[in-house]
Design a protein around this nucleic acid. Sequence first.
DNA 1: ACGCCATTTGACCGATCGGTCAGATTCGCG
DNA 2: CGCGAATCTGACCGATCGGTCAAATGGCGT
Lengths: 207, 207
Amino acid sequence: MDKPLTKPSIREINERVILAAAESVFAERGFSGATMSMIAKRAGSPKANIHYYFPTKETLYRAVVARVLTAWLDAARSFDASDDPKEALTAYIGAKMDLAREMPLSSQIYASEMMRGAPVVQDYLETTLSAWVAERSGVVRRWIAQGKLKPIEPKYLFFMIWATTQHYANAAHEMATLEGGPLSDEAFERAKGQVAQTVLFGVAAGG
Amino acid sequence: MDKPLTKPSIREINERVILAAAESVFAERGFSGATMSMIAKRAGSPKANIHYYFPTKETLYRAVVARVLTAWLDAARSFDASDDPKEALTAYIGAKMDLAREMPLSSQIYASEMMRGAPVVQDYLETTLSAWVAERSGVVRRWIAQGKLKPIEPKYLFFMIWATTQHYANAAHEMATLEGGPLSDEAFERAKGQVAQTVLFGVAAGG
DNA sequence: ACGCCATTTGACCGATCGGTCAGATTCGCG
DNA sequence: CGCGAATCTGACCGATCGGTCAAATGGCGT
């Protein structure tokens, strides 16, 4: 879907460029710390032209956040890849970890949104995410009933997965300092494996 | 130590009030989003008086962050409470969880600091925290050598603990929305237990 | 009571913020 | 090519920012 049958219009191109610039600035400085001039400079346009495409700073911010949420939901789908808890959780944790590594800016914006009380994504929390959690909690409870998992509270399991994976974006700088440099691909893959292993062993039915 | 032998001076009282006000504003809006007038209003003093005690916004911010770090290190000490991995990890996770619940503002400020690349606490990361991790990694490796833990990379274990506990501060609003209200004390205690249990089972030597 | 220093305060400053606007320029279609 | 719409841009605006300052007020030892 969404194939470029027609060549992208000037509007499409520029909105894309501006959104990318805005994402990086919002991630670095937060909503209040970001300035329109900074975004304009990074996008390579005069400030007035940014306002031509996105009338206000808040409009622009909402557009950036909207992109973040779609990426989030895409990764969430990997949870449904299998009916087996081991496979499903491994796939989900892996997808979330990859997301944090490949789109750290988005992850940081999402975290900042939450810390500020979700002024923009509140309704997403109440509708889409609530529904997702309710549905998948049912799946986890079924696994528990089938004796495949310990009797845990599904919500806290999801919190733990979100926390851990998000941390690899939020605290990338802290980790880099402690490691003496950015995590290599190999180190990241080992981290991914250990997180998945730990969670799986932690919740797997005793045996 | 530090007993109030003499009654606190005007300076001590006011600095305390200002720091508390500043902490809440910085946590809500981030460094750039916080304004001196907002802090002044919350502290109940005119803005000029804030500048009398803390000459610049950055000075004030650094003072707030300094308090956060001492609370951090206090909680970290609970890791050394025992030589037994089960007890030590349970105590450490519990202390960190309590910290996130009792001082959510501090936790959020710390997270924001990291996301902005640690402009203020960089040297703390390179010295104090690095040393702490190096030392405790040695302890974990000893436990592994004694067959008490799976052969894991200690650093990723710490990352996971930090991530999970910090999440209960950073994402408190997200959790509250999904739970239909703030986590009760009971719910929080259950979460704490499940996190500790999951991590312990996840890293405990098989058997 | 006096005098000295700490503290408090409202008025004020230049810089920068988000946003506006009119006019110049370019695009795309007949 | 011609022309209306879309796009671009420098100049500009009021509001607010962090920070300053001189004068007023208060606390306290003697």
